[in-house]
Amino acid sequence: MAMISAQTFFISFFGLAAVWFGIVVFRTHSMMRSALALLFSQTAIGAMFIGMQAEFLGVLQIMMMATEMSIMAIFMVMFMMDPGGLGKMDMTHQKRRSVITGLVAFLAIVAVALFTNWGTLAGSVPDSAQQIEDLGLELMGRSMLIFETAGLTLLTAMIAATAVAVEPLKRNRN
């Protein structure tokens, strides 16, 4: 029992951290802080995964998000009018509606989470090495098609994004 409660505590702690940093993302005026708050939110989620014994996914999440959010950071600084957040400008619109929608979504999901019978809890989780092996076999077996499709989608998206982003034609500039 103590074991389980330690795990629950771990999950709840990082859950709270993830939510807290998630809120900071939209509360701070400094774009750099905003991007890094999102990073820490995602890292906390990764830690939650580890808490839920999904070690591979957790470490992968922590690794991927670090680069992803760092890239996010440079774009934030590039594309914001006031990246340092000194002007305290308001960068939002339809705030009321957004808050209400967000709250409603949250409450609805919580209600579903609380009042659904999720069935019986399963027993123990296989150990990490086993999980990785299973996941690998799954990827290379039954889910191969899905995985390949995902990979191909990613590749297409990357090429498309690059094509959109590069300068269209060398125009004559002074």
Binding site: S30, P83, G84, G85, L86, G87
Partner: peptide, 8 residues
């Protein structure tokens, strides 16, 4: 320099 000025 501060960030704000720097960027503007």
């Amino acid at each position: 320099m501060d960030h704000g000025d720097m960027d503007h």
